[in-house]
């Protein structure tokens, strides 16, 4: 893992060796940002790995297919684009957990939903096109589940990791 942004220093040093192929590892480490903005970006990027344009495309394709990469492209900041998101949590009775998980996850505004080991045992991220949409989604989830939702909007961002060391 490393600091956010290309200007930041201090790569995290205890990365596990999860990718055996050295070229794949170099691609994952070097292409998490700064993918070239030019007519033939794969050709431009491939030079630094000593491979051709076609091979870089094929390797990225394969790493998407086998799950090494979750995606390839721009990573947007939803808030800067006018949208909103928040972390939220509920205390769901164990006997009712499956049903409530289904109800909550069915909301399109719920981007991620995790069971966690705590009295507040369901944690999810709400993402909406407008800030007002968050309160509306919270109210609808409370109505649909009959349970209170605690919203934890971020008040201050201290750090967000943008790169992982492979």
């Amino acid at each position: 893992m490393s600091r956010a942004g290309p200007e930041a220093a201090g790569a995290r040093t205890h990365a596990p060796a999860g990718i055996a192929d050295p070229v794949d590892r170099a691609i994952v480490n070097a292409l998490q940002g700064e993918f070239p903005l030019c007519e033939r970006p794969f050709a431009a990027a491939a030079e630094r790995f000593g491979i051709g344009e076609d091979e870089l495309i094929a390797r990225v394709d394969r790493m998407i297919s086998d799950g090494t990469l979750t995606r390839f492209g721009p990573l947007f900041d939803a808030q800067k684009l006018g949208g909103a998101f928040t972390l939220a949590a509920m205390a769901v009775p164990a006997a009712d957990f499956e049903r409530v998980a289904g109800v909550v996850s069915a909301f399109p505004e719920v981007a991620h939903n995790y069971a966690r080991d705590h009295a507040l045992n369901m944690w999810f991220v709400l993402a909406t096109p407008t800030p007002e949409g968050i309160d509306d989604a919270v109210a609808r989830i409370e109505a649909a589940t009959g349970l209170p939702v605690h919203a934890f909007p971020k008040e201050r961002e201290y750090f967000v990791e943008l790169r992982l060391v492979a």
Partner: peptide, 27 residues
């Protein structure tokens, strides 16, 4: 290309590239 560059500069795009899977990297 120009608009992608502008959105990178404004922070609307945090970065452009590959997004690795934490689990597959061993985390």
């Amino acid at each position: 290309i120009e608009r992608l560059r502008a959105m990178l500069a404004s922070g609307a795009i945090r970065r452009i590239g590959v997004v690795p899977n934490h689990y597959r990297l061993g985390w």
